[in-house]
């Protein structure tokens, strides 16, 4: 989505009622963020809405970008936010070989997740398994981590359920995500 460098459009202040709506929506989509919501968007703070090309809107709490949204799709967290609260999102992991493709903007393919270096939610795993137990449905928001790396490298919407991935081991898992070094990442907010 942000493969090319983009420039921010108009910046407006978000109405407080809308802001409440966003807050509720965030909590609904990412219940794990609940303990931090006051840290992320304090009630008294004024959020800004920055319009980006292709009908994407970005909500920021200057100077930090928080969430972006394409039309009425689910709110997606910006990677800097994920880096601050990595454990609050459903996560999957890709193997080392896939990182360079992800960082150059390719769609994330299932083999990168099903190979030994990758991690998907696994119902049969033990309690200390870090990547969730229940399979994720297509359309859910996931954060993509990388083998041997501490921080997430991508966030996007699943195109294929994780169960299907495990069966097929083929095809596109996520396309049009937001990844490290893309246009949204490099966007200057001033």
């Amino acid at each position: 989505m942000f493969k090319k460098d983009i420039s921010a459009g108009s910046k407006t202040k978000v109405k407080s009622s809308v802001q409440r709506g966003i807050r509720a929506k965030v909590l609904e989509t990412y219940p794990l963020l609940e303990p931090y919501i006051d840290e992320i968007m304090p009630k008294k703070e004024q959020l800004d809405l920055v319009k980006l090309p292709d009908r994407v809107s970005l909500y920021t709490l200057p100077p930090q970008p928080l969430f972006y949204q394409h039309m009425d799709d689910p709110l997606l967290p910006h990677l800097t936010l994920i880096h601050r609260y990595p454990h609050c999102f459903p996560r999957i992991r890709i193997d080392r070989g896939a990182i360079r493709f992800v960082l150059s903007g390719a769609s994330l393919m299932a083999p990168g997740l099903t190979s030994p270096g990758g991690r998907l939610p696994d119902p049969s795993a033990g309690d200390d398994y870090d990547y969730g137990k229940s399979d994720l449905e297509p359309g859910s928001v996931v954060v993509v981590e990388a083998e041997g790396k501490e921080n997430a490298c991508m966030v996007g919407v699943l195109k294929m359920g994780t169960r299907e991935m495990k069966e097929k081991k083929k095809g596109v898992a996520i396309d049009q995500g937001h990844y490290l070094g893309d246009g949204l990442w490099n966007l200057g907010l001033d």
């Binding site: 880096h83 990182i99 960082l103 790396k149 921080n151 490298c153 490290l180 070094g181 990442w185 490099n186």
Partner: peptide, 8 residues
């Protein structure tokens, strides 16, 4: 330099 986390 490149604005990514150093590990990347």
């Amino acid at each position: 330099i490149c604005s990514l986390p150093p590990e990347y």
